[in-house]
Write a protein that binds this DNA or RNA. Structure first.
Lengths: 199, 199
DNA sequence: TCTCTCCTTGACCGCGCGGTCAAGCGCCCG
DNA sequence: CGGGCGCTTGACCGCGCGGTCAAGGAGAGA
C-alpha cells in the first residue's frame, strides 16, 4: 500500500503500527482483530485499509522493522571492535539490551515463529544473526583464541542462550539487562565448569 | 470428556489425537480446523465431539501428554547417576534425543508458547525442567565442581542451548541427535574459549 | 433374535472475522 | 474563499469457523 501522506497521515499510520504491534504482542495474531485495533484507536475500519492492504501486510511491516532495528543496533555495537571474541560479546550485549528495551517486539518475533506465513521471515533473520556470529567464531578459531568445532553450532548455541535468558530473566522476571548480559556472556565464553579468568 | 469406550472407541480416539497432533504441528492451531481433522480421517464431525468437548481440550491433552512423556524420559535417564554434572549431561542428552524423535511434539510445544491459552502450561513445564537442572547445578556448586553464580540463570541457559540446537540442527538441518548432543554438552560445560579436558 | 449402548452421520446454527465501498468531511493550497 | 485531495465513516458482505443435535447403524450380550 503506497499513498501520498500528509503529516497527519504519517502520524495516523505510525499510531496504527505502534498500537497494533502492542496488541499483537499481548494477544497474539489471530486474537487481535482489525476491529479491535480500530476500536482501540477510536477510528472507523476504513482508516485501517486506507493505510494497509491487509492485516498480513501490517504485521509483516512491523516484523521487518523490528528485525532491521535490532540488526542495526548489533552492527553499531561491534563497529569499532577488532577482537572477534569481544565482537561476539558486544553483539550479545546489544541484543539483550535491545530485546529488553522492546519486549513487545521480542514477543512479536516469537509469535511470528509459530505462524507459517511469517516463520520464513523470522528464520531468515535468525540465519543472518547466526552467520554474523559464526564469522566471529571462525575468526577466533583462525587466530587460535577458540578451539576447533562447528562455528554454526556454536553460533546457534549463543543465539539460544541470548534469546532464552532475555525472555526468562529480563522480560519475565524483570532482571536488569546488564546483569543478565554478564551472566549470558560468562556462560557462553566459559561454560559451567570453568572459572572466568578475571584479569 | 469422559466416556466408557470400547476397544474400537479407544482406537478411534487415539487416531484423532495422533492425526490432530501432526496437523497442529504442521499448520498451527488456528489454521487446523475441526473440519480439517475429521475430513482428513474421513469421518463425520460428530465423531470429534463424541470424544472431545472442544478443540481446546484436545490440544491441551496432546500438550500435557507430550510434556509428561519428555519428563519421564529425562527422569529415567538420570535415575542411577550420582554425579550432578553427569546428571545434567544425561538430562540434556535425553531431551535432545526425545525432541529429535518427536519433532511434531516439539513444534507443538513451540506453538503453544504463542497461544495465550496454552502458554501457561508450557511455562509451567519449563519451570519444572529449570528447577530440575538448577538442583544439579546447586549440588555441583556445593561440592565445588562448579564455580559460584546463579543456578537458575545457568539452568535457563542450558535449556536455551538444548532447545535451540535441537530445533536448528536436528529438526531443521537433520543432523544426528547424538552429534548435536555432544556439541551442546561441550558448549554448556566448557563454553567457547575452553578446550574440553579429555581424560 | 431382540435390545441396549456405543458410535457415527451431516445438515445446521450463530458468530465474528477480514475486507469493501459509497458517501462525506475538513485541511491545505492556490 | 473555494476546490480538490487526503482522510474518515460505518453499514455491509461472504465466508468458514467451533459447536449442536436428531436420527440411525452396528455389534455384543442376553
Amino acid at each position: 500500500m503506497d499513498r501520498r501522506l500528509t503529516r497527519r497521515g504519517r502520524a495516523r499510520r505510525d499510531q496504527l503500527v505502534d498500537f497494533a504491534a502492542r496488541r499483537f504482542a499481548e494477544n497474539g495474531y489471530h486474537s487481535t482483530s482489525v476491529t479491535d485495533i480500530v476500536n482501540g484507536l477510536g477510528v472507523g475500519k476504513g482508516v485501517f485499509y486506507w493505510y494497509f492492504a491487509s492485516k498480513d501486510e501490517l504485521f509483516c511491516e512491523i516484523l521487518a522493522d523490528a528485525q532491521r532495528s535490532l540488526r542495526r543496533r548489533q552492527q553499531q555495537a561491534i563497529a569499532d571492535e577488532d577482537d572477534p571474541v569481544r565482537r561476539l560479546e558486544q553483539g550479545m550485549r546489544a541484543s539483550i539490551t535491545w530485546l529488553g528495551a522492546h519486549p513487545h517486539l521480542f514477543a512479536l518475533v516469537q509469535l511470528a515463529t509459530s505462524e507459517e506465513r511469517f516463520a520464513g521471515m523470522v528464520r531468515a533473520g535468525e540465519d543472518v544473526a547466526v552467520a554474523d556470529t559464526a564469522r566471529h567464531v571462525k575468526e577466533g578459531m583462525a587466530t587460535g583464541r577458540i578451539p576447533g568445532g562447528d562455528p554454526f553450532a556454536v553460533a546457534h548455541a549463543v543465539l539460544g542462550v541470548t534469546n532464552h535468558l532475555t525472555r526468562a530473566l529480563v522480560v519475565e522476571r524483570g532482571e536488569k539487562p546488564d546483569d543478565v548480559a554478564d551472566a549470558a556472556v560468562a556462560f557462553c565464553l566459559h561454560g559451567i565448569l570453568a572459572r572466568p579468568t578475571t584479569p
